[in-house]
């Protein structure tokens, strides 16, 4: 399994520089949380790391391969990307939506082979969707849809999984559930990167944390090392308290 590395990455949107020289390695088998205030450049960095936003300068490496040199379909097989609030626009059944995740693997003509069918089955089971398989994806609740999208992303078992705000719009139980499933992918040896606003969840589940502010990496490293009261206070411009309560740590923001 391969790590994903950003080297001197600069991203511009129009005349505005949104990421000014990011240098970071996302390790295989680890769940990395990208945190930072709104507009810090998290989404842009993730899109560039996924190869979907061409950087103004700098490079992205997937293992030993330069990301921009990989053919589209190979890149699509090796890394999965879920944008914020990913959804489906037609009332297609859950099972077929999950199968769309295999599009880069499928031959242009011809159907789903037995191995691919079992991959779909596994993804449905892993995301607790077996009972929903025939439901139109447009009729699902937010939590269910998030599970469908995750199943769509992991059905091809990609080396790298990049998820932009997997917990946005989810209630606490579903948010916890979503991050737990990402944790499981990392435990299975994949490189998992998520942008997240729930710092409690990042602190509890992530191995590594990258803190972004104004397009620059403020701090990066092991979650417990990065997520200190000083760093979080500086990052969000709000005083942060971290309370340790047995095995669990929680972050409180106070004015």
């Amino acid at each position: 399994m391969s790590a994903l590395a950003l080297r001197n990455l600069v991203i511009r949107r129009g005349a505005r520089t949104v990421i000014a020289g990011a240098d970071i390695v996302f390790h295989a088998g680890r769940l990395t949380a990208v945190i930072g205030p709104n507009g810090a450049g998290k989404s842009s960095m993730l899109a560039a790391a996924a190869g979907l936003l061409p950087p103004a300068s700098g490079t992205v490496w997937l293992g030993a391969d330069l990301l921009s040199s990989l053919p589209r379909r190979e890149l699509a097989r090796r890394r999965a990307y879920l944008p914020q609030r990913a959804g489906v626009e037609w009332p297609i059944s859950v099972e077929r939506v999950v199968a769309l995740g295999l599009a880069p693997t499928l031959p242009v003509f011809g159907g789903v082979s037995p191995t691919l069918a079992s991959a779909i089955e596994r993804a449905l089971e892993e995301c607790d969707l077996v009972g929903l398989r025939d439901r139109p994806a447009t009729s699902l609740s937010g939590g269910e849809l998030a599970r469908v999208m995750l199943a769509r992303a992991i059905v091809g078992d990609p080396e790298v999984l990049i998820v932009d705000e997997p917990t946005a719009g989810l209630d606490p139980r579903h948010a916890l559930d979503a991050v737990r499933r990402l944790r499981a992918r990392a435990d299975a040896g994949r490189t998992v990167i998520m942008a997240i606003h729930e710092v409690d969840l990042a602190l509890r589940f992530a191995d590594d944390v990258v803190a972004l502010r104004d397009g620059a990496i403020v701090a990066a490293g092991a979650a417990t090392r990065v997520m200190t009261e000083a760093t979080l206070s500086a990052l969000y411009d709000v005083r942060a308290h971290i309370r340790h309560d047995g095995s669990c740590s929680t972050v409180h923001f106070v004015d």
Binding site: L52, V97, L100
Partner: peptide, 16 residues
């Protein structure tokens, strides 16, 4: 078919 997931996801799945 893939575009049913929206343009960003379709791009990520290898659709130009």
């Amino acid at each position: 078919d893939v575009l049913a997931l929206g343009e960003t996801q379709a791009e990520s799945l290898g659709v130009a």
